[in-house]
Amino acid sequence: MKLTIQRLTSLTTQDRIDLTKVWPEIDISQLEAQLSETQRMYAARFNDRLLAALQLTIQGAQGKITQLQVREVTRRRGVGKYLLEETLAQNSALAEWWVADDGADEQDIRAAFMQACGFRAQGDGWTR
């Protein structure tokens, strides 16, 4: 089965289980209740399982991405980059992008990843 990037507007029981593995520290039910046209969630799905996800807040022509995470067992396979690229493509009307530096990952690895995706460092995150 092919890896697909989807905007999630409601979650199945399996989605909730998978997202708990992506974001163990986040209340998934509360997050789902906040989803709207300006508060979005995108996820990478493979074989009916979510492997990675991010949150997108839209303010005018700016997209702010937070909580970009890939499950530990899936890292270093291009899933995060594909998730980020497809999220940008699916929201092509947005002119400015900012990605929060809110990951617990090693900073040098995260910085290399963001640069490979075409972003440049800016204080507490990356812009494009």
Rank of each mutant, 00 (worst) to 15 (best):
G80Y: 10
A116L: 03
S36V: 15
A121S: 15
I26H: 08
Q59H: 08
A33Y: 14
R71A: 15
K64N: 14
E32V: 14
L94N: 03
Q90L: 10
A43I: 08
G63P: 04
S36K: 09
A44N: 02
R75E: 11
E72P: 00
Q67R: 11
T127N: 07
R77N: 09
A89P: 12
D48S: 04
W23L: 04
Q55I: 13
R16W: 02
G78M: 06
E85L: 03
S10G: 13
V22A: 03
A53P: 01
E106A: 04
A112I: 00
R71Y: 13
R110C: 04
T12G: 08
A52Y: 00
Q59G: 12
R49S: 06
R40A: 05
F46C: 07
L84C: 05
L31N: 01
S29N: 14
S10N: 05
R7Q: 14
S29G: 10
A111M: 07
N47S: 13
V22S: 01
R16V: 07
S92Y: 11
A61G: 05
D124H: 12
T57F: 03
I65G: 00
D101H: 09
T20K: 02
A61Y: 11
M114V: 01
W23K: 00
L35V: 14
Y42Q: 02
C117S: 07
M114T: 02
V70S: 07
E86L: 02
W126P: 02
N91E: 06
S92W: 06
I58E: 06
W98V: 06
C117A: 07
G118Q: 05
A104H: 07
T13N: 05
T66E: 13
T38Y: 01
M1H: 09
Q34W: 15
W98T: 09
D15K: 05
R16H: 02
T127I: 15
D27A: 12
R77V: 10
T20C: 03
L88T: 12
T12S: 09
G123S: 08
K64Q: 10
E37S: 10
L84H: 01
F119E: 03
Q34T: 15
L35C: 08
D124R: 15
A112K: 12
K64W: 08
L11R: 05
D101E: 09
G80A: 04
A33Q: 13
I5Y: 11
Q107C: 11
Q122V: 06
G63I: 12
L3A: 01
I17M: 04
Y42P: 00
S92G: 10
A89T: 15
E106C: 08
F119T: 00
G60Y: 12
L88K: 13
L68W: 04
L50K: 01
E86K: 08
I5T: 13
T9R: 15
E37H: 08
V73N: 06
Q39M: 14
